[in-house]
Each structure stands twice: as structure tokens, then as C-alpha cells.
Design a protein around this nucleic acid. Structure first.
Length: 897
RNA sequence: GGGGCCGUGGUCUAGUGGUCAUGACGCUUCCCUUACAAGGAAGAGGUCGGUGGUUCAAAUCCGCCCGGCCCCA
């Protein structure tokens, strides 16, 4: 039985250990998809820190997992570590103070895995200490061989489907990371720079014009000059040729509305490539390529005298030479927006390189439709997905020039460049160390091959998590088969996702899985917001406003933090609030203390197995609880965590503890009442189950203290006995858990809810009477008369309010009632009388009305209008001249004294 | 620059057409009542960002403005 005060420091870790040790949340395979609920958890990047985003996201997922487990059955709640991307590569470099380029790929990957292994173990421990009901028997790393095989298999399948191509094309390139990156990995940043005004000659004339550029080193790459079609001043240049200073190439002048007339002279040079507009122009006007800067940031032969110089030095040299020849007209400082790599803040280059792409632009409508077929929580987040797809301009570049990652399973013929893909049976492969599957090129018969040394974009793999979880193409018998080992899991029932990465992670996952299976990978998507600081600002290192979860959880129970996390509407950002966590802690204590009282008043052996005849109030409480059970389930199904939490807390705290428990306490102590005992214990066990999804630890402990056969951990620890011995109370090592019990079914009692409410109104009126007179709540009241239908509650009311003599009046007390006004029911009156409503209101206001008959036959004549009974209520004030004080409630009249 | 979300007592928040606007925290007063004073009871506190419109009726729908945040350029 629960005793003393709740000790989460002992109880929470003990249950976390036991849940993991006994596989409480292990997924048991079932054939019927309806009996399982699968969650496709996005694997977090392995980087060491556990931040609030992890805590918040994982906790919300856990609310769903725990509820679905109770309500439906088997829940598949896996966990993954994303350790094959640039983030883990950088982590390894920083941790060991090395550069990936200094090592052979396998060597670096080995180091990478060693570093990540420590972080993963640390992360596992932290996730387990959050009490999240993950099945730790189903975890994966995105670098592990099984995942590598699936990822390479995905590449081969999409290639065979004609969804992938290799092309020499403009690519976004990070010079610092020395790799291609995708559009989504860039962001805009304001940077200081210089505008150089440079004179260009018009070929065959004496005229010249000025262009302004921040990138003089791109002059050798200049392929054309652009003028806005509405730029009258410069319109005469269109159709002419211009000569680029220093380099001498003649380039056409073309009109295009993408020119920003406000910047510089209005005439712009187009190079290979200065920015994204240059690429658009290159494509739109079929311009030639002049590649002046290579992948290492060095000037090419195209740059003539400047070849071999780093591009920034070349820029300075070119400016000096322009100045010398008189072509440099002006140089001035400006700030402008540049595209930078989000991970290292280096301005990106736009290079022409050979990369692999997944074709997506041709199927935008299908991916949009796939998104429409999923249920979005909240619905509005679908808009973000839609806008992202509608704005897509590039196919998906999946090549990365990194060491750590999953290799492309491809070799190229040295003679004809034909790609040769690995055999599906051989996966995973590394072309750098493995031989191609053929001895000679199937196209030309040549026998020498060059391995592809690029690796996949991290999203190319992390977009496969539904397939990884469902065991896609594991190919135990047939390596070419794409059958799933756990087909009942797919499509996954729910995908949780932060709203900031809908556009790439979720989108890419839909694309990949849709192409492999022909259907959307998820039935539903649950979007979570960001955790903000106490002032609703994003937590960031530079602002110094980060609150570490570790330090908070050292001070407060995990359940209290879970309570805080449940205080949000799905999709909304949630500010970190210490007060919110304190409120959770108070609820834990309230639940613990109430449980102690319930166990004292209604110990298990004192409660009848069969339901006894219930007192009216007991029946009322259980019927109200039925309503709460349904409400809680509806809210959880809608992922409306905050409503679920607040509604349940309020009903438990106020209705159960403040109202019912106080009354039942008195009744049991005075009359040894089996009805109240049964009700207390029944309701209490139900409350534990209703709270279980959010207050995972305290409900488990209490349920074991009071309802399960096995010993509770708290008692075990106090007794100093071995944990495992206590746990063996369950058969075959299986420990009962409140989390694997069924969600409570409504009892379906036929209670008069209104009568119960009326009785509590009387209690409320008497409390108020005492409070207003500064009386203690347990102060005695001599005589109270009640007029109203509360006959079944007289004893309960009298005992709770310490009334010596409570008399039920047969007739209304001698009160004089005065009509003080008319309350219109506008939902009826409005549609009926429309624009005449103000006249009716004026008539009532001015007292120009007549009230005829009573009750359902009442008629109100207001001015020239006749209103029937359902259109209004009559406001009355009672005046009581008799002995004692008159208290009024909606359904009863109470006289004290 | 384009798109989206949001603005409700001091703070946070419920509330997508029906007239005394929900709750929590904080505040005031009272009560140590044998589960809990980290508790209980009662109260004070809001022209629902501003403005114009639609409607018999607007926190709610529409326009504009102000402020904040997010995504994208």
C-alpha cells in the first residue's frame, strides 16, 4: 500500500530499469494490421546533446504509444540513430581532431562508428530515463549493414525504374565541406561585401556601360549581359554584343525580367555561375558554360593569366588590373544576402559537376496527392507540405563527396562511362574495396572500371525509415524480392515530425516510399512544435537562453516534465515553463495522497467483488467518470493532449478529490459503507489508467501498490530486497504493467446526473455561506432546509457540511418572487425575428411587455411581437422575509438557520 | 519580396456566429478540516491587438493597419 510521500527519485529509475529489463514494451508481431499501431520515429542525429526538442518530441510520441497500446493492442515503437551524415562526420572530426580526407574511407568510418557508439549509448540511457515506451529490441543505426543494404537497394530499384539519373549540371557546392549539397541545406545570410562598378564596351561602337558586381573573379566566366525589358534607359543595348574587360570574350546582351532594376546600373552580367539566377538564365537562354572556378575554389584555364590562383586572390588581382586599365569605375561597401551552407555558414558556389539525381519535378502532383491521403495533426500543417512541393525547382541531388556515409553501389566503365550497378544479392557493397559484378562492360566490353567514390545524401537513407522498420527487401530467401518482413506495419500508422523539417525529411520520405510501394508511407502525420524559452524565444547557444533538460530532470520528476509536455496543442510551439513542471509535480503528489486515502478507506480486502447496490452519489460519480473516460479517449485520438490533460486533471482534482472523496470519507468512517468502498476503488483504478499515458511512472507504482499481484518497486527498494526477485512474481518473467492493461470500458450506469449536480450545488452554496461569514468549512450548521430534488443525497450533504438537522421541504419556501427581467434565447429569437430583434429588446428594456401563463405555455407579448416559451427565460429575484438566510442555486433553494 | 501561423485579465491558455468569455499560475480574504497548507473555500481582475465592414447577433467571418513568430525566395 502507498505510504509516506511520493519518492520519484527512487521510483522512476526503478521502473525505467524494469520496463527495459523485462521488455514491457516489446512489440509482438500480429498478422492483422488493425491490431497493431506502428510509429515511424524519425531517428535523431547522433550529436551527444539531449535537448528539449528530443524530450518534447519523444514524450508526445509516447503519449500516443501508451494510449494506443491500452486502447488497441500491439504498438511498434522503434528507435533509430542517424549516424551516417555530415553531422556525425563533423562530430568525429571535432572529437578526434582529425580531417576525414586524411584517412582511407573504411578507416575513417571505423573511427566514426567508435565515436558515435559512445554518443549512442549515452543517448539511449537518456531516452530510457525519460520513461519513453520504446521497444529497445527494435533499434537501428542508419550506418549499420542492414540499413546500408536497404539504402543501396533503394538506389538500384529507383535506377531500374528510371527515377534516377547522373548528370553534369549546375550543383550547389560547399567549398568548405567540399561536397555538393541540396537546396534545403542552404540558407540566406546577410554579409558585408563590395560592389565593383566595371565598364563594359559595346562591340562595334564607342559606347560603354557599367555593370556592378560583388564577384569580379567571375569576369572570365561571364557569358552574357542582361537588361530588364522595361528598362528604357538601357533598352538600346539589347541585341548588341559586349566585350568583357581584361578577358575579351564577346557576350550577347539579352532582355529578361529577372533583372533587378533597382540594384546597380540595371545591367547585370551572367556568369557560370554566380547565383541561382545565373543558372535559370543558363537554362532559359541556352547559354554556353564558361567554368572559371573549380571544385577546390581554384581558377581554371578559362581564367587565363589568373589560372591556378585561389578565387579570392584572383578577385583581388582582377580588381587591381581593372583599376590599372581604367575599367574599374568605383568600389563601395554594401551588405547583401548570400546563400550559405546551413552547417558551416560558408557561402556556397554554384558549380557544374557530375552528380546523381532523383527525379521529382515530374511527379509533384502525385506526391501532393499522397500527402492529401494522410491525416495531418494538425490539419493546417498539410499547407506547408503543399507549398513546399509547389515551389520545387530542382530535382533531388543525392550525391555527397564525403567519407562517412553509404557508398553508391556503382562502377563506371573506363571506356564508355556506362554505370554498372551492384548485384542485389551482394549488398551492401563498397565500390572502393569491392569488385563490380561483371568482368566486362555490358555496353562496350571494356574490362576496366572506376568505382564511384561518392556517398548518399543523408536524406536518401533517412527517408527510408518506414521501410527499414517494416523490414523491406530483407531478402532472406530471395535477394531480389522487395517483400517486407513485417508487412502488417506498413503503411506506418503515425509519423511524428517537427514542423521545421516537413519540407525535407517528411517530403523525401513520402517520395522514396511512394516510389517503392506505390502508396503513402503513413496513415497519419503528427507535427510537433519547437520548445521555446520562458519568453517564447527560440533557444539558441548564441542567445545563451538554453535550459538543459538534464539539469531540470535532476531536480524534478520525469512525470512532471511529461505533464508539462502534455500542455500543448498538437503542432504548437511550447515555451519551457518551470511553473508548468511544478504544476505537474503537484499533481503527482495529489494523486499519491489521494491514493493513500483511497487505500486507507477502501483496502482491497474490504471491497466486495460484485458491485453492491450503489448510493445515488456513488452511482453519479461513476457515471461522470464514464463520461470522462470517453472524453479522454477522444482527446487522445485527436492528439489534443492539452485538452485531455486539463480535463482529466480538473475532474480528478475537483470533482473526485474535493467533492466526492470528502463526502465518501465521512460516509465510510461513519457507516462502513460498501457502496462507497466499491466506488472509491473502482474509480481510483480507472483514474490510474486514464493518467497512465502521461504520468507513466507514478501510475505504474500506484497500480502495483494497490491492484497488481507483483510487488511495487518502491516497496522493494525500501525493503532492500533484490529487484529481480520481486519482479519474478509474474509468470515466466513477464511483469504486469498498468501500461499493458486495457483502456477502461464505460460501466454504463443509469445514473441521474442532474440530481447529483444539484446536490453538489447545495454543498457549494453552503461552502460559500461559510466562507462569506469567515467560518471554518467544518464549522457546524444547526438547521438547513432544502427545497429541490436531492432526497437521495440528504445524508451525504448533511455529513459533508456538518449540518445537525437537514430538512427537505415539500413545498417552495414562502418567498416572494419578483420578475426582474427577460433573458432572450437569441439562437431562436434571432433567426425568427431578424431585424425586429432590437425592437423586442427595446420593449423589454422599457418594461412594455406582458407575461402570460407559466412554464411551457408561457407567452411573452413584447411590443407588437409574441414570443413563445422556448424563446426566453424569465429572470426572477426571490425575496425571503422568513427566519434564516436564503441561498439560491440553479436547481434548489436552501435556507440556513 | 511571397506564403503560413498567431495576438484573449499581470503571465500562459480554452473558445471557428448566439449575448453573465474557459481554465491555470500569480494576487486578496478566510480556514492547520486525522490524504495532501506544495491543501481547501471564497473573491478581485479582461472594451478578446487596432480599425472598417458583413449580420438581428462577431473573440469567432471579410478588408485594411499594427505587433510577434515560422517557412520560402
Amino acid at each position: 500500500m502507498p505510504s509516506g510521500s511520493y519518492d520519484p527519485d527512487t521510483v522512476e529509475p526503478a521502473w525505467q530499469d524494469r520496463w527495459v529489463d523485462h521488455g514491457t514494451y516489446a512489440y509482438d508481431a500480429v498478422d492483422d494490421p488493425d491490431l497493431s499501431f506502428s510509429i515511424d520515429t524519425p531517428p535523431p542525429t547522433v550529436s551527444g546533446d539531449l535537448h528539449w526538442g528530443h524530450v518534447y518530441g519523444a514524450t508526445l510520441q509516447d503519449f500516443v504509444a501508451r494510449f494506443e497500446r491500452m486502447a488497441n493492442g500491439g504498438v511498434f515503437f522503434p528507435f533509430g540513430y542517424d549516424d551516417n551524415g555530415i553531422a556525425s562526420e563533423r562530430l568525429t572530426e571535432d572529437e578526434l581532431d582529425i580531417e576525414h580526407a586524411d584517412f582511407e574511407r573504411h578507416e575513417f568510418q571505423r573511427k566514426c562508428r567508435e565515436v558515435c557508439a559512445d554518443y549512442e549509448a549515452d543517448f539511449t540511457e537518456k531516452m530510457q530515463s525519460l520513461g519513453v515506451s520504446i521497444d529497445w529490441g527494435h533499434t537501428y543505426q542508419t550506418i549499420e549493414p542492414r540499413v546500408q543494404r536497404i539504402s543501396q537497394r533503394s538506389f538500384i530499384d529507383l535506377y531500374e525504374q528510371g527515377r534516377e539519373y547522373r548528370r553534369r549540371a549546375p550543383t550547389i557546392w560547399c567549398p568548405d565541406c567540399a561536397t555538393a549539397i541540396s537546396q534545403v541545406e542552404t540558407e540566406d545570410d546577410e554579409r558585408g561585401s563590395h560592389f565593383h562598378d566595371i565598364a563594359f564596351e559595346v562591340v562595334g561602337s564607342d559606347e560603354s556601360f557599367t555593370i556592378s558586381t560583388t564577384r569580379p573573379e567571375l569576369l572570365p566566366a561571364c557569358v552574357s549581359v542582361f537588361v530588364h525589358p522595361e528598362d528604357e534607359e538601357n533598352q538600346h543595348l539589347v541585341g548588341e554584343s559586349a566585350r568583357v574587360p581584361l578577358f575579351g570574350q564577346e557576350v550577347p546582351t539579352i532582355a529578361d525580367e529577372r533583372v533587378d532594376m533597382e540594384t546597380g546600373s540595371g545591367v547585370v552580367m551572367c556568369c557560370t555561375f554566380g547565383d541561382q539566377t545565373d543558372i535559370e538564365w543558363y537554362q532559359a537562354h541556352d547559354l554556353p558554360l564558361r567554368i572559371a572556378i573549380d571544385e577546390t575554389g581554384t581558377m581554371t584555364e578559362q581564367a587565363g593569366d589568373y589560372a591556378g590562383m585561389p578565387s579570392d586572390e584572383a578577385g583581388e588581382a582582377i580588381v587591381a588590373d581593372l583599376d590599372e586599365t581604367g575599367a574599374l569605375l568605383d568600389k563601395r561597401a554594401i551588405t547583401h544576402t548570400v546563400n550559405v551552407h546551413e552547417r558551416c555558414a560558408t557561402p556556397v558556389e554554384f558549380l557544374v559537376t557530375e552528380q546523381w539525381y532523383v527525379e521529382i519535378l515530374d511527379k509533384k502532383e502525385e506526391y501532393l496527392q499522397a500527402g492529401r491521403e494522410m491525416d495531418w495533426y494538425p490539419e493546417k500543417m498539410f499547407t506547408r507540405y503543399r507549398h513546399w512541393i509547389e515551389g520545387l525547382e530542382w530535382d533531388w541531388c543525392i550525391s555527397r563527396q564525403r567519407s562517412s556515409g553509404i557508398p553508391f553501389p556503382v562502377w563506371y566503365c573506363d571506356d564508355c562511362d556506362e554505370p554498372v550497378l551492384a548485384d542485389k544479392a551482394d549488398l551492401p557493397v563498397d565500390p572502393l574495396s569491392d569488385d563490380p559484378p561483371v568482368g566486362s562492360c555490358p555496353e562496350c566490353g571494356h574490362e576496366e572500371f572506376t568505382p564511384e567514390d561518392d556517398v548518399f545524401d543523408t536524406w536518401a537513407t533517412s527517408s527510408l525509415t518506414p521501410l527499414i522498420n517494416a523490414g523491406w527487401a530483407e531478402g532472406k530467401d530471395d535477394p531480389a524480392s522487395d517483400a517486407m518482413a513485417r508487412p502488417e506495419l506498413y503503411p506506418m500508422d503515425m509519423r511524428p515530425q517537427g514542423h521545421d523539417i516537413i519540407s525535407f525529411w517528411l517530403f523525401h520520405t513520402v517520395v522514396k516510399c511512394y516510389e517503392h510501394t506505390g502508396e503513402p508511407p503513413f496513415d497519419s502525420v503528427m507535427i510537433n512544435g519547437m520548445v521555446l524559452d520562458e519568453n517564447r524565444e527560440k533557444m539558441s547557444k548564441s542567445k545563451g537562453n538554453i535550459v538543459a533538460p538534464d539539469s531540470v530532470l535532476a531536480e524534478y520528476p520525469v512525470d512532471a516534465a511529461r505533464y508539462w509536455a502534455a500542455g500543448s496543442s498538437v503542432g504548437d510551439d511550447l515555451p519551457y515553463k518551470e511553473k508548468g513542471i511544478v504544476a505537474g509535480e503537484r499533481l503527482l503528489q495529489k494523486l499519491w495522497n489521494a491514493s493513500k486515502l483511497v487505500d486507507e478507506l477502501a483496502p482491497a480486502e474490504s471491497v466486495p467483488d460484485e458491485r453492491p447496490d450503489l448510493a445515488a452519489l456513488d452511482e453519479w460519480l461513476l457515471a461522470r467518470l464514464d463520461e470522462e473516460i470517453e472524453r479522454a479517449a477522444e482527446h487522445l485520438e485527436d492528439r489534443a493532449f492539452s485538452k485531455y490533460r486539463d480535463s482529466l486533471r480538473s475532474f480528478f482534482w475537483h470533482t473526485f478529490c474535493d467533492d466526492y472523496l470528502e463526502i465518501a470519507k465521512g460516509r465510510i468512517r461513519e457507516t462502513d459503507d460498501p457502496s462507497a468502498r466499491y466506488t472509491l476503488r473502482t474509480a481510483h483504478e480507472r483514474f490510474l489508467k486514464l493518467f497512465a499515458p502521461v504520468l507513466a511512472h507514478v501510475t505504474e507504482e500506484l497500480w502495483h501498490e494497490m491492484y497488481a499481484d507483483a510487488d511495487p518497486v518502491g516497496a522493494t527498494v525500501e525493503a532492500g530486497t533484490d529487484d529481480a526477485t520481486a519482479a519474478d512474481g509474474g509468470a515466466a518473467g513477464i511483469v504486469d504493467s498498468v501500461h499493458t492493461t486495457d483502456w477502461p470500458e464505460p460501466l454504463g450506469l443509469d445514473a441521474d446526473i442532474a440530481a447529483g449536480e444539484r446536490a453538489l450545488e447545495v454543498v457549494g452554496a453552503l461552502r460559500k455561506y461559510k466562507s462569506e461569514r469567515d467560518l471554518a468549512l467544518n464549522a457546524g450548521l444547526g438547521r438547513v432546509q432544502v427545497y429541490g430534488d436531492v432526497a437521495d443525497y440528504v445524508d451525504d450533504i448533511a455529513r459533508a457540511m456538518h449540518v445537525d438537522e437537514l430538512e427537505l421541504l415539500e413545498e417552495a419556501p414562502a418567498v416572494e418572487t419578483v420578475v426582474t427581467g427577460i433573458d432572450l434565447d437569441y439562437s431562436v429569437v434571432g433567426p425568427e425575428f431578424g431585424g425586429d430583434v432590437p425592437d423586442i429588446e427595446a420593449a423589454i428594456e422599457g418594461g412594455e411587455y406582458v407575461l402570460e401563463d407559466e412554464g411551457d405555455d408561457a407567452v411573452l407579448l413584447a411590443g407588437e411581437f409574441e414570443l413563445t416559451a422556448e424563446m426566453f427565460d424569465v429572470e426572477r429575484e426571490r425575496r425571503y422575509d422568513g427566519e434564516g438566510d436564503l441561498l439560491e442555486t440553479d436547481g434548489a433553494v436552501v435556507i440556513v438557520g
